[in-house]
Every structure is written in C-alpha cells, then in structure tokens.
Amino acid sequence: MELELESEGGELVVPVELLYGITEELTVTVVLPFRDPFENGRLGSVGLRAKWRFATRFSPGRADAVAAVGGITVPRSSADGPQAGPVIIAGLAAGRESRRWYYFAGVRTAIHLADEGNDPGEQLLLNVAWGVRPWLTEYLAPDLVLLVEASSRTEGRTRVNGQTVDASGGEVLSVAPAFLLSYRNVMLKGGVQIPVWEHLNDAGRSEDVRILAALELHW
C-alpha cells in the first residue's frame, strides 16, 4: 500500500495506491486519489494500473529490470469539474538497483479519450533518475537513498467541440531532488519537483512546484 501527499494547484491530494503482486513479475495497482481530504474530501479520478516486469537480470547485490506499464484512469466529473473521458496510460520503464547506485528511466504516454466534445491533448512523459545509497547499512538498519530525477512532459493542445484551444498544452522540464528512507517493510519517500524550463502555450499559465511525500507499506 502506498499513501502519498501531493499538492496540485494549491489543493492537497492524497492518492492511496493499493498494489497486489499477482506473481513476482505482474503487479496490479488501484489508485484512489482523495482530494482536499481535510476540508471537502472527495474521491478524484480512480485509476487501475498493471506493471509487467518482463525482463530481469540478477547478479550479486544488483537487480536489473525492464517493465511495461499500462492502465486506465476514469474521471469522476463531480469531483474534478468538466472533464474528458477515460485516460489510457502506456509506457516502458527500466531500472538498475545495486547496493550503492540506483538508475531508472521511463517513458509513458497518456491518451485522453474524448467525452462530450472535450478532448485534452495527449501527454508524453520522460524521466530519468539517478540515486546513491550513501551508507551501505545492513538489513535491520534504516536505509537511505538520495535521488535526483529529471522529467519532461509534453502535452498536446486541447480540442473542444472540434476546435483547437491555442492556449493549451506545451512542454515542461523539471528536476526533483528526492529521498527514500526505509526500515524493513516501511518506506517513506519525499521530494520536490521544480520546473526548470517551460514552454506553455498559455502565457498566463505557469507550472507549479510540486511537493511529494509518500508512505509505502509492504506486506
């Protein structure tokens, strides 16, 4: 189970992710995002994802894996305001984790299915991460990993009733210093995603700094 805290457009979002490993290679996740949970708490867009780790290579103190990810997010218009239809997510991710170093790269696309004439632009997300475990602690000690992640998001223009909305879509490049702190089956994650370059078609819009805190419990 993973519990996150995110700030999105000034609103606090707490996505609760329930992960279940059907096999050691196939994991399914249900995402239940609770928006503004401390005031007018409501459930946002519910997501269902699957991750298939189709290639692995293990060596002493090291694990390499390549995975395909796919999923669907179903918007709830009452919670999110005027919305498009479901969002299909597909992507690939590859990672290497060793005792000292951590590498990750991923590519993902989000395709919005039009609904009632509202057709948000497709998104392409790329990210790479590098991490280091400064202290090689043993199993029964707290474990810290420091990470830096660079990510880019390219978003196409929205179409409403067949008309392209010029002031929509664009590109954003962000950098996110982050950490993972775990003790046995409990992991605390934290990070700040800082936009470092943006080219948004809406001149009045600017990408926000996002703060992420997450708790993951493993049974």
Partner: peptide, 16 residues
C-alpha cells in the same frame, strides 16, 4: 544461501 539481486533492505523484507 548466496542470493543474487539483494540490493535493498526494503526488497529483502519479502524474502525474509
């Protein structure tokens, strides 16, 4: 046992 892939304590919990 010599086990390959043992990189992080969080992952090792499942093995335990």
């Amino acid at each position: 046992m010599r086990v390959d892939g043992l990189a992080c304590p969080f992952c090792a919990h499942g093995l335990e």
